[in-house]
């Protein structure tokens, strides 16, 4: 087996296990740490598939900002000790999740069962930046406004007055 394929299977196992841990554990802080591990594994997979900039942005934004925000949410509400984690529809939820996975897997296998992907194209940051500021400059500005609006909205919601 080629080296990228071995790396893929190791990273895929890591990501799958930490994802499962995230949704199954009953401790809120453990769940947040499992989410961080899962997102780091996904970022490593992004880099493996040639998306270096997206992988690093994933680590910076998700692991650096979003998971820390979750930690703030857990700590500031003081709910890490009280068991309000799950509701009483776990079996039904597991059934629905299994059905979703089976449908998706059947679709994937029947559509891409024999198709192969090679790790050969890397998307350099120069190319992405150039596209982002020429073709995609209008959506880029829209996302900037969206982030500003979300910032103002979060302050308005969480402000104590």
């Amino acid at each position: 087996m080629a080296l990228p394929t071995i790396a893929f299977w190791i990273l895929a196992a890591f990501t799958a296990v930490s994802t499962l841990f995230t949704v199954l554990t009953r401790n809120v802080v453990h769940s947040a740490l499992g989410l961080a591990a899962s997102l780091i594994g996904a970022a490593a997979l992004f880099i493996l598939f040639g998306a270096q900039f997206v992988g690093l942005a994933q680590i910076l934004i998700y692991v650096g900002a979003v998971v820390i925000l979750f930690m703030f949410g857990i700590m500031l509400t003081g709910t890490a000790v009280r068991p309000v984690v799950d509701n009483d529809q776990r079996p039904a939820a597991a059934l629905v999740a299994l059905a979703v996975f089976l449908v998706l897997a059947a679709g994937i296998v029947s559509s891409f069962g024999t198709k192969k992907v090679r790790f050969q194209v890397a998307f350099p940051t120069v190319q992405l930046g150039h596209q982002l500021f020429t073709t995609w400059v209008l959506p880029f500005e829209a996302v900037s406004i969206l982030l500003l609006a979300a910032l103002v909205g979060a302050i308005v919601l969480a402000r104590r007055d």
Binding site: T15, A16, V28, A42, A94, I108, F112
Partner: peptide, 30 residues
């Protein structure tokens, strides 16, 4: 490598997320 492998991993992550959304009642875990 078969392209189905990463797609199946992605489907697995999606199913875990669906389970989490349906089964969690803690707002942050949702």
């Amino acid at each position: 490598m078969y392209v189905a492998a990463p797609l199946l991993l992605s489907a697995f992550m999606f199913s875990c997320g669906v389970y989490g959304v349906l089964a969690r009642r803690h707002g942050v875990m949702l």
